[in-house]
Design a protein around this nucleic acid. Structure first.
Lengths: 186, 186
DNA sequence: TCATTTACTTACTTATTAGTAAGTATATTT
DNA sequence: AAATATACTTACTAATAAGTAAGTAAATGA
């Protein structure tokens, strides 16, 4: 096993998050990996297939992370910090998140890829809502709104800040994510 | 004058905001307008050219709106409401905003289109920052953060909420934009 | 009225795309 | 040792993309 399949998924994800789904081609991947176009089709018969696999991999990664935090007994603040760190890392790597990259192309995606994107977005929003609900109940987080609305506002802050950082060089990404968390302190 | 040029710009904008920049073609436009491919190239020699014109048109529209509000003596709340309404309209039409649509494709855009997108984003962020600064000084808006950071957080809330509304059917867009404004009440 | 500009069409070209069918060398299994 | 599965390559196809050169019909201007 040379791990080509995994490399294709990783490269595909990076391409989606830097150029966008409709701007990358199988050639981009095959050239980078030093293989032929058809070799990519060997693993992923169609682009829709690859797109779906990339989203599925991301879902798995997210679920492993949250389950891991749970089993390690992370408190609400630790979990929130770990979550925010995902976006801080994306920002450092000048990448958008998967949802922010594939969302604008939603209407051009296949039904199966759409379904996975919906599932991923749901999982993230539900997880964060749960975290905020629990943190509010235990009074470790302090905020006035409904947890679901607060979750929506935090995620939109993080997602679109990655986008604006790409456009506006001096966009203060740090100020945004810091105010997101500081606001929750009581 | 048949207004073909204006129709192309309008259609192009709608295509960018529904399918994304790299997913639409001159064929999409020519077919819809009942003209030939080459006719679109007659007005806009290259796609980069069209993209740039679309962003420029949006900048003009935004500046006309803000100048108009100023000359009509709109107060801070009226101006904020008018601004939020742009996104409410986009939401109703199931479209993203131009920045949210072109941002993910930023790395695939030409230098000239990028420059206009940067300019547009700057203009909007500066305008909202100014509005929040003035509203805070007059104590008609109440918020703790720096106006620039608050502006960033409001815009990211609105932009990415359009995106999430596209993915998650039952995404509560209204709850987000209402909490954005209600939060500013003292 | 003649010349020119405007607003296109016709008919291409070149490049790139996703995708496929058939072949091959190397491991792995029986 | 023979059969088979794995991981590809070679060599394409068909579709679509952006873009162009040359032509045309109608309106406008001198």
């Amino acid at each position: 096993m040379s791990g080509t399949r995994e490399k294709i998924i990783e490269l595909g994800e990076n391409l989606i998050r830097t150029k966008g789904y409709n701007a990358f081609s199988y050639q981009d991947i095959s050239t980078e990996l030093g293989i032929k176009n058809a070799a990519v089709h060997y693993y992923f018969p169609s682009k829709e297939n690859l797109g779906t696999s990339i989203v599925k991999t991301n879902i798995q990664r997210f679920e492993e992370m949250t389950e891991n935090m749970k089993s390690l007994g992370f408190d609400e603040w630790q979990q929130l910090d770990a979550f925010v760190k995902i976006y801080v890392k994306s920002h450092r790597e000048q990448k958008l998140c998967i949802v922010g990259s594939l969302g604008p192309d939603y209407n051009t995606l296949s039904e199966t890829t759409r379904a996975e994107l919906v599932r991923m977005t749901d999982i993230i929003l539900n997880w964060l809502t749960g975290l905020l609900t629990s943190g509010k109940a235990k009074q470790v987080f302090s905020f006035g709104e409904e947890p679901r609305v607060k979750a929506n506002r935090i995620i939109t802050n993080l997602m679109a800040s990655l986008l604006l950082s790409r456009i506006i060089e001096k966009f203060d990404f740090k100020a945004v994510y810091q105010s997101v968390t500081e606001e929750l302190r009581s």
